[in-house]
């Protein structure tokens, strides 16, 4: 009860600061909504373009997950003091943290500058971001391993990458769950990478919004929603099977 009251007070103060409590704002929003609704609709003649754009979005997301997972698999053992000298682990951790601190869309801007606009920039941005994000998950799962398991594998003579892969096997469920999480994240992010010219369906959404062609824009938004729902559902089914 106290938390609810606190949140209500904070929300009211912040909303006031941002001008959201101004009645004229809501009156204007109402008028705009009445004007906007009749313009909504789906243009089925654009379905082919939308499907192609979705396919590109999916490719960008999947490459981001597969490439990012591979890089993170190699980086995580280097980032873990269990498997690497502490100095190396510190440096690799710092790099991985820096990579995931920068939002994926900013990496997309960088790659648009480096390789030009299009899906290549988007795929590279998501690969880099995913590798930083998953490297953290992976080195944490390596360190959460039962110490006795680690000891018995060390005594066998396992070290370096093979030891990391054995420990990954032990944490397989958690690792797959994190990869699926990144798949969902990447699909959502890939839909907006087009806003900065990095390919995918976002390019069309921004293009039609700039032309004030809301029906066309909404068509692409609807297809985006369908893809996100499909990926979330697939991911949910796969998680349940783990």
């Amino acid at each position: 009860m106290r938390l609810t009251l606190t949140m209500a007070v904070i929300t009211a103060i912040l909303a006031y600061q941002l001008g959201l409590l101004d009645p004229s704002l809501w009156a204007k929003a109402g008028v705009n909504l009445v004007r906007f609704i009749p313009e909504l609709g789906v243009r089925w003649d654009l379905a082919g373009d939308a499907l192609l754009a979705l396919y590109e979005t999916l490719l960008i997301s999947l490459l981001g997950v597969s490439g990012g997972t591979l890089i993170a698999y190699m980086l995580a053992p280097l980032a873990s003091p269990l498997l690497s000298p502490p100095r190396v682990a510190f440096i690799v951790r710092t790099v991985a943290n820096a990579i995931r601190t920068v939002p994926a869309i900013l990496w997309a801007v960088l790659f648009v500058i480096l390789v030009g606009p299009g899906p290549k920039a988007g795929a590279l941005a998501l690969t880099l971001y995913t590798s930083g994000y998953l490297a953290k998950f992976f080195y944490e799962s390596l360190e959460a391993t039962n110490r006795e398991l680690y000891d018995s594998l060390k005594v066998i003579g396992l070290e370096g990458l093979p030891l990391a892969f054995a420990l990954y096997s032990h944490a397989k469920k958690l690792i797959i769950s994190n990869i699926l999480f990144m798949l969902e994240y990447n699909v959502r992010t890939a839909t907006i990478l087009g806003f900065v010219g990095a390919g995918g369906i976002g390019y069309y959404i921004v293009h039609y919004l700039n032309l004030l062609n809301y029906q066309a824009a909404l068509t692409f938004v609807v297809f985006t929603l369908l893809l996100v729902i499909l990926i979330d559902f697939t991911s949910y089914i796969m998680r349940r099977r783990l």
Binding site: S152, G157, A166, H170
Partner: peptide, 17 residues
């Protein structure tokens, strides 16, 4: 290395495999 086998109380087996 590799000539000693150590079986801890928790056995050191990888579950899920």
């Amino acid at each position: 290395k590799g000539r000693i086998a150590y079986i801890p109380q928790t056995l050191g087996l990888i579950e899920g495999e």
